[in-house]
C-alpha cells in the first residue's frame, strides 16, 4: 500500500529556502505492541521493525539504516501511537 501513495502532491515554489526541522526518534521498546501504525504512516519512511523482540514478543520500531537524519519531527508517530511507545525530539543542527 506504500508504493501507490504520492508523497508530495505539489512542489512548493520556495522549497529551496525552506528550513526542514530535524528530529530524533525515541522508542520505549517495552510498551510496543507491533501495531505498525508509526512505521506505515511515517512520511519519510524513517522507521522499520527491529529483528529483536521485546519482553512480550513484539517487534518494535527502530530507525532504518541510512535514515538517521531523515526524521523531520512531524510527530505523527508520537501522536498516533496507541501505546505511547514512541516520540521525537527536535535537534537544532541543520546539516
Amino acid at each position: 500500500m506504500n508504493e501507490s501513495r504520492e508523497k508530495i502532491a505539489r512542489q512548493p515554489m520556495d522549497l529551496h529556502m525552506a528550513q526542514v526541522p530535524r528530529g530524533e526518534v525515541h522508542v520505549i521498546a517495552e510498551r510496543c505492541k507491533e501495531c505498525g501504525l508509526c512505521i506505515n504512516y511515517c512520511p519519510t519512511d524513517v522507521l522499520v521493525y527491529t529483528e529483536d523482540i521485546n519482553a512480550r514478543g513484539y517487534r518494535y520500531p527502530t530507525v532504518a539504516e541510512g535514515k538517521e537524519t531523515s526524521c523531520v519531527h512531524c510527530r505523527f508517530c508520537d501522536l498516533i501511537c496507541p501505546e505511547l511507545a514512541i516520540f521525537t525530539l527536535e535537534v537544532s543542527d541543520h546539516g
Binding site: 501522536l79 496507541p82 516520540f87
Partner: peptide, 26 residues
Amino acid sequence: NEHPIDHLLRADRLPHILCPGCGIGT
C-alpha cells in the same frame, strides 16, 4: 524511558491492557 506526556497518564500501568491495533490508546 519516559514519554513527554507521561505526567498526565498513570505511566506505571503502561503498557495498557488493550489489544495491539486498538484505537482507544490513541
